[in-house]
Design a protein around this nucleic acid. Structure first.
Length: 230
DNA sequence: GACGGCTTCGTGTTTACGTCA
DNA sequence: GGTGACGTAAACACGAAGCCG
């Protein structure tokens, strides 16, 4: 079952997921958090019972198995989140791909989970989002590569034809109309006016592409222009 | 400025669980 | 109904980086 990109929060820019940690403490509760706090606690579908107010979230040493996480025989039991819990977490993720401690605690309390579980869910969620984004980027670059290969083939053919013409009649060649060389960047489909603007245009295009969610739309290729005949 | 402790994150791996042939 | 293969996701391990005293 494939999840749609929007379901995975792929509309979020990658950079937006990097909330500066310095803001964690300073951030105040705002609308989504208040909404979480106002919502009723959801019954957690648990494989084993864990007290809701457990707050030990040490990532190393204090494993979940110790702090109420099942597994009397040492095996870790897996909690399966309910649909409602997943929905709330998804909503929260759309609002904030990363959580500050307050948000995490509020979410954990609301869902009847441990902070550590919320934290792990967000980590896995970010990883899944990145994986999906990578797949999308890969697909995009593959298409770019195909386009460029095709273009390269066409241009090589054109060069061969021109060389053949030059051998036949240099005089005739000088009076020909310019060849139909590339005047448009295939990646960003922007027509070049002059060489000086190419780099700037390309950089701007990259920025614009990222804003539009087209990650990986990188155009470093110089744009060929029609030869100037003086 | 160097250092250690703490926390969080990204990344890769392990493993429990659900589904399906 | 039992079973093995496979996919998914929760949990974990580990190193990197930032912050703070």
């Amino acid at each position: 079952m494939m999840e749609r990109a929007e379901d995975l929060g792929l509309s979020l820019s990658l950079s937006s997921s990097l909330t500066p940690r310095t803001h964690h403490v300073a951030m105040q509760l705002h609308a989504p958090e208040r909404r979480f706090l106002e919502m009723p606690l959801l019954p957690a579908k648990r494989v084993c019972e864990v007290s809701a107010d457990e707050e030990r979230s040490s990532q190393r040493g204090g494993s979940d198995d110790e702090d109420g996480g099942c597994g009397m025989d040492g095996s870790r039991k897996k909690l399966r989140l309910s649909k409602d819990q997943s929905a709330v977490l998804e909503d929260s993720f759309r609002e904030h791909p990363t959580l500050n401690p307050r948000q995490k605690a509020a979410l954990a309390q609301q869902l009847g989970l441990r902070s550590r579980q919320v934290e792990v869910w967000f980590q896995n969620r970010r990883a899944r989002t990145k994986l999906k984004q990578t797949e999308v980027d890969c697909e995009f670059l593959k298409r770019c590569c195909e386009t460029l290969t095709e273009e390269n083939r066409r241009l090589q053919k054109e060069v061969q034809e021109l060389r053949a013409l030059k051998l036949v009649s240099p005089h005739q060649y000088m009076h020909m109309s310019p060849p139909t060389t590339l005047t448009m960047c295939p990646s960003c489909e922007r027509v070049s006016n002059n060489n000086n603007n190419n780099n700037n245009n390309n950089n701007n295009n990259n920025t614009a592409d990222r804003r539009n969610g087209v990650e990986g739309a990188i155009c470093h290729r110089p744009i060929a222009v029609r030869p100037q005949h003086s």
